[in-house]
Amino acid sequence: MAAKLSQKTSRRIFKPLVFLIALLPLAWLGYALYSDTVLGTRLLTNDPVQKLDRELGDWALILIIITLAVRPARELLGMNEFIAYRRMIGLFAFFYVLLHLSSYTILNLQINLDEFLVDVAKRPFITIGVINFVGLAALAATSTRGMIRRLGGRNWRRLHMLIYGISVLGLIHFIMMIRADFSRPFIYGGCIVVLLGYRLWTGRRKRIPA
């Protein structure tokens, strides 16, 4: 009883905390924009359209990687609590991807549909980005308890395995956009390889009959 209560309490404290932490990047970008406009700083550089695009994409990928880390964190570190926040973190990843796509279409392309369609058709890294957006939207739409019930646990788990593919495509999308300096995709790639490797390794072990 006592354990249950403390779990409830910790959730009551940590859930809003995780929520607020996930909002920090956006809050920072909002502050930077305010500061650049009112205080004359250049936190978002002289080319804020580009900077905003990059920052939002970066944070989307980081949050995707964090959702991948939830399961190993539970299994290896015994952080059972953490799993309760995976859906929220995943939804935030989708939220940042949505903002990333919006900044690209609204601020960068200035709502030029023709140009957007040409980009999607002709430029593989943008095609990949849009595919990823659709994939994440599907995961977000099926993240509710009702949808889990409707799909059945097994189908739902299968569908949500997509997140691994999305993380790899996200990384490729990032690498394809870069002109030089691959240090950041190298770090993200390392994380993805380790987390994906762990998943494959543990998945295989489970299938071995006891």
Partner: peptide, 24 residues
Amino acid sequence: PRWSQSRERVITGEGGIKALFAPR
């Protein structure tokens, strides 16, 4: 190969909201 060259963002030294919504 990765982006269109038909338009450009004109950087004036202005930052913030004004630069964010400046027409290309």
